[in-house]
């Protein structure tokens, strides 16, 4: 059996006075590509932030590679939502990617040419080499997301958390990002992705975590991504049914 890279036990968290997460338990094995799926307000982003200590937890414990967060920080990469930063910030794409290396560079030191080279290679890998010097506000949404992914890539982490990397991006970017995620998986890295598009879950992720304030189901996509579990996650009024949606899409093809 593969090594457990992430162990979440009895985790709970609140925003203001509302409990948004309670009794969250799951274990992720190395090399998994996990989709975190659930309705709006299910606590998907909060789950990532609480796991990463960016949001206080009320109860519970999280272990990475069997160790607490601060011991293994360098092995963990985080891609926040694209909308969480100000893209008018005076900087360019290469500089943003270099930020992924700041933890490794350390205090009182400047990024060297080698660091810049690494950052450029990551941009290249995402098809963004031509945009390295571009002011970040001049990039399209998809290009901005690729910059964020390149930044995660240079961190060379073993476990990644990504908050909606596929939200509002063009088809080419979606393909580029999924290729990258599958490559990371092939290298034995673990990736957890907050995802909103139910149609693509089966194609993209080998594991799925169905979340609605607590874990509804977690496991191999083939086994647990069933109509019944999805409607349990989204509540009774879910109209989305796989068979029907396929019927709708087929004539267009």
């Amino acid at each position: 059996m593969a090594e457990a890279v992430l162990q979440v036990e009895n985790l709970s968290a609140s925003y203001r006075k509302n409990t948004v997460l309670f009794d969250v338990n799951f274990v992720v094995q190395a090399g998994s590509l996990v989709g975190i799926v659930g309705p709006n307000g299910a606590g998907k982003s909060t789950l990532l932030k609480t796991i990463l200590n960016l949001h206080p937890s009320l109860t519970g414990s999280v272990k990475f590679f069997g160790l607490p967060f601060n011991k293994v920080q360098k092995r963990i990469g985080y891609v926040p939502q694209r909308g969480s930063v100000d893209w008018d910030f005076p900087t360019n794409a290469l500089d943003v990617v270099t930020m992924g290396l700041y933890g490794q560079i350390g205090w009182l030191k400047r990024p060297s040419r080698l660091h810049k080279q690494k950052a450029f290679e990551a941009l290249e890998k995402l098809g963004m080499a031509d945009y390295a010097d571009r002011q970040i506000s001049q990039l399209s949404g998809g290009q901005q997301q690729r910059v964020f992914l390149a930044r995660a890539l240079v961190q060379n982490a073993d476990l990644y958390f990504m908050d909606e990397p596929l939200a509002g991006v063009d088809a080419a970017t979606e393909r580029a990002i999924m290729t990258l995620l599958k490559e990371l998986k092939a290298l034995g890295k673990t990736v957890m992705v907050v995802h909103h598009d139910l149609q693509t879950v089966e194609d993209y992720f080998d594991h799925v975590l169905l979340l609605n304030r607590t874990v509804i189901q977690y496991g191999k996509t083939k086994q647990i991504f069933t109509r019944e579990n999805i409607s349990r996650t989204y509540g009774g009024d879910l109209r989305w049914l796989r068979e029907e949606s396929l019927h709708v899409h087929n004539p267009i093809k």
Partner: peptide, 9 residues
Amino acid sequence: FDPALAASL
């Protein structure tokens, strides 16, 4: 620019 990333680093 990105306090969340900074904290995670």
